[in-house]
Design a protein around this nucleic acid. Structure first.
Lengths: 206, 206
DNA sequence: GGGGAACTTTGTTCTATATCAAATCTATAA
DNA sequence: TTATAGATTTGATATAGAACAAAGTTCCCC
């Protein structure tokens, strides 16, 4: 029987393969570069409801999800959770404001399901970008994608009623909606869980 | 007296210096790289109210403002203008969705004041990124900044009332508010010009 | 597998902001 | 210089969704 450490290393290597596969969709890494990426990151398992970080803490890392689902939220002045982002497989997530400035965040980062996450520390990230310029390209491309996604999201918030935004979101991501409780979806879409329940109770016009 | 073309070239070179100065805040370009950047871009003058692009057109370039002010907006289903971004000196602006996909945009890009703009075509942008890897870094850093800005903006939309968001914006950018008509500020902040007028008419609580 | 907490549903009332309408005010172009 | 469209103000009315409240439901944890 293998010692615990080796089992973990084997598992860990498999997680890292997911990240490498994702990077290779955008840039072509050679063996040495793959090694440098793998040496820069760590694999972490988080249980459902476990927090990776909480408000008032500093986001010293960026997180890539290989399995599961996380949410990023803050508490508004009425004391309600406001989810600003979900992250599922093959997404990076962090509070970039805190990550960049080194100042405490207002955000909570919590697992919605048992999840596997790859983390890269701020320091390792900066060093990796200098050592492997292809990673500048990789993150530049990802950030362009993120930017277009948030522009799109903004459009929806400005051009649709809450009810329309709900129906639209469900039609776009029917599978994802199954994975999360309703109150989280309501929070993400910007209204109360009671209102979501009322929408669902309504018969859709034939 | 100099021929028209030379006068323009001289002016054009000065505009490009602004861009180079901006890039040099984030990465250090050598002479050859500066030349490559300058060869990749064009200088354009736009008069107040003139459109750089309109809805249904394709954003084939990214635009850097050296002087003046532009707005990016779309027409919502009620026929109202929804401004999603302003761009002033030293900001890049485009509809990245259209820029990346080559599909027609829903956005209008219009000068609010007489402005000077440097454009880089999609083709020149892609080539420049390959020829000058430092530009990957430059745009990666800029996109991180843009991303944090839109996260912040989202927070404000979720955590403040319209009136609070107005007062907050004015306190953050008093000079900018002077430069634009009220109805544009209302559109950017997500409410009607009538409502903005009513807010302004109110006495602030002492 | 039972009990309590976490969710969801349902009904009522309330409020911020939209919408509609019309009266000024203000720039710009002829 | 004035005519005219564009912009702002002001007031009356309407409405989407919040807040509050309380009854069901489901999910876990012991």
């Amino acid at each position: 029987m293998l010692p615990e450490r080796l089992i973990f290393d084997h598992h860990s290597a498999k997680m890292k393969d997911n990240l490498i596969a994702h990077i290779n969709k955008f840039v072509e890494l050679d063996e040495a570069e793959i090694q440098q990426v793998c040496d820069s990151v760590n694999v972490v398992a988080v249980k459902k409801k476990q927090f990776i970080l909480k408000a008032d803490e500093i986001y010293r890392a960026n997180y890539f999800i290989t399995k599961g689902c996380l949410r990023l939220y803050f508490i508004n002045r009425n004391g309600n959770e406001q989810i600003t982002q979900f992250a599922i497989e093959n997404w990076w997530i962090t509070d970039y404001t805190s990550f960049e400035t080194g100042k405490p965040s207002v955000y909570y980062l919590q697992a919605i399901e048992d999840s596997e996450v790859i983390s890269i520390s701020k320091k390792a990230y900066e060093e990796l970008l200098l050592k492997v310029p292809k990673m500048e390209r990789y993150f530049r491309i990802l950030l362009q994608i993120v930017h277009t996604a948030s522009m799109r999201r903004f459009e929806y918030f400005r051009d649709q009623t809450d009810e329309e935004r709900y129906r639209h979101f469900v039609s776009l991501f029917p599978g994802f909606v199954q994975r999360i409780p309703q109150y989280m979806l309501a929070s993400f879409l910007g209204f109360t869980p009671q209102f979501l329940s009322k929408i669902r109770g309504k018969k859709v016009k034939p």
